[in-house]
Amino acid sequence: MKSAVRNETILGYTLLAPALIGLGVFVIVPMIWAFAISFFQWDLLNPPRFINIGNYLELVRDEQFLRSLKQSLVFSLEVIPLLFISSLFLALVLNQRFVRGRPVFRFLYFSPAVVSMVIVSIVWRFILDPSFGFANYLLHWFQIPRQPWLSSVRQALPVIGLVTVWKSVGYYMIIFLAGLQTIPAEYYEAARIDGVSAVQNFRYITFPLLRTTNIFVLVITTIESLRTFTQIYVMTQGGPARSTFVIALDIYRNAFVFQKMGYAASMAVVLFFIILLLSIVERKYVKEGY
């Protein structure tokens, strides 16, 4: 009995070996390095200088950092539910048997995910231009007043959130679609015979059986939304008036613009623990699926 367990251990680690080594060398070692460098002051061009917890002390008093953190959380709170619900919804609709041309629709919804984020951001920046962009042109046609979009301190962050959702919906939609394939058709057959409504179908069959996928999507969207960088950098560079200055931009700014690598690393460490905490909470909250 014991050797069977040991065999499985050996097999397990053998299978894990490439992933462990790869991730170990290129991600885990850098992570440990980043954690270490957060106790130094390093300007990238000269040797690092040990300053103990100096960076963390500065972090606590950094007004901008707290603002960035707050804006990141606000952004995530908008993006995560929207993304989850819309991609699940689309997956469900497209999984219906009566819908003709499913492949076409799937393909169309997946389109934004295919184009690189930089190009997507540029295209949307054009469309959302307050003076000459297509979005306002359309609104004007429907007699709705023009909006400032990315030039407004109140609208910029939510708008970028919407663009983010738009781009990623297709992505998570196909993840949900894959997950839906695991639900045996017999369950739905049985339910149909019992005369169950569509909503009940969803509540008692589909959603519970999607648990592992649900957890996955929830955790991943949380991680990704808190790491958002590219679209904000391209569309507003953290403006206007720092209203879209999220934490990833703050880290970038400190690392490369100010060459304060140690300080940026300390921010990244704090962000890491926040994300970690959130993920643990999310998984415990949805309970099983671990």
């Binding site: 992570m31 970038y252 690392a255 690393a265």
Partner: peptide, 13 residues
Amino acid sequence: MTLMIPFQIVMIP
């Protein structure tokens, strides 16, 4: 956890 760290920090090491 390896997903939780921003790439800008990881990329230098």
